[in-house]
Design a protein around this nucleic acid. Sequence first.
DNA 1: TTTGCGCCATGAGAATTTTAATAGTAGAAG
DNA 2: CTTCTACTATTAAAATTCTCATGGCGCAAA
Lengths: 222, 222
Amino acid sequence: MRILIVEDEPGIFNFLKQGLEEESYAVDIAEEGKKGLEMALSGEYDLLLLDWMVPGVSGIEICRQFRKDFKDTPVIFLTAKDTVDETIFGLQTGANDYIKKPFHFEELLERIKVQLRPKSGEHSVFKLGNITLNTSTHQVFKAEEEIALTQKEFALLEYLIRNKGLVCRRSRIIESVWDIHFDYNTGVIDVFINALRNKLKLGKEENYIQTVRGVGYIAKEL
Amino acid sequence: MRILIVEDEPGIFNFLKQGLEEESYAVDIAEEGKKGLEMALSGEYDLLLLDWMVPGVSGIEICRQFRKDFKDTPVIFLTAKDTVDETIFGLQTGANDYIKKPFHFEELLERIKVQLRPKSGEHSVFKLGNITLNTSTHQVFKAEEEIALTQKEFALLEYLIRNKGLVCRRSRIIESVWDIHFDYNTGVIDVFINALRNKLKLGKEENYIQTVRGVGYIAKEL
DNA sequence: TTTGCGCCATGAGAATTTTAATAGTAGAAG
DNA sequence: CTTCTACTATTAAAATTCTCATGGCGCAAA
């Protein structure tokens, strides 16, 4: 999932960029309104985080322009406490949510997830090369052949495919798939990656799940 | 967790009540403003859901009065689309969030969870009789003795204790602890309840985890 | 190119989790 | 009070998941 942040304060956008990237979002920054609008209109993004007060074109103007072309992409405003009442105007121009500064990162994350959920929920079928994964039936196919996977194997594959093309860090995999948030020190991931590669018969020609040395794994088309 | 809904339309409050109770919240309804304020001020609730347009004392007035005594209890407004701009005024008077009608139940649920999270996060130690469960160290004690539990055993016990005093339906347990949201047809819960009762040595005198025939289980003080 | 280090792959065994079968029990019906 | 039925308790075995040890391999430095 790609997120565009339009925000001029480095303290804030660096904090956001780092945090969101750790959550496996792909993040771009625009420090100024005109550039932000231009990037937003490129259509590359799944969600916009707009600062209310940004130099150049205002956040609300970006939102309005953006909405002309993109009716479904969620927009969240970051607003200072004392401009909350203006922000409501932003909501009327098509923003989906706003969050008051200072905010807890966790809360922002929740709101982002809420906004992105309906869209990702629509698609219950994901593809990776000739592999098809269906989250509603919990089935996996390699070409025409159904592959029987266990719960954890399925969950791991789903995580990798949902983040197709993005490097998945071990720590993030452990958190998302195993729900372990504390002293992480285990080799389970390797074992299950191994199991997936075997069951899916991924040889050298079909190396869809690649190792990223020192970091984790990545699922990608060849 | 106890939630008070102040809302006059039966169609809405019944829908909310049922949905939230399925999520193991305890829900009360006030169909009218004066009664709603009175109930809110009783201090029994962990969260308020206020309709903006409610007969008698207005939602915003309830919120303002309530805030005088309860600084930390979250308040969420349910607002019709065409009164959004007034709602901002509600946010300024101390509401924590609002949601536009018509809304997706899932989204409301997320927002409720967000608001309740910080409070429940504060406490990492839960008690049930002489049993102590610590979520940050992942330890469980029966009186002074530490009891070694496996992951699933711990998760199940945590779920039961977090919902202490409330009946936990099998379907909810399966969803929360096992993360299974589809055709549920298994006897795992029974097996793990059994394991917990054994490990915690719950005899007839210390029947902290009781069976609710046909529904599920309940953890309660004696 | 060779060496050395550290990370990853792999396989086997241990522990946990799940299934499935049987026995037991509460509550309804007769 | 007895019987029947449906649900729960308990146990053992099967399946999955996890740990651990060993060997292999990539990458960097010499």
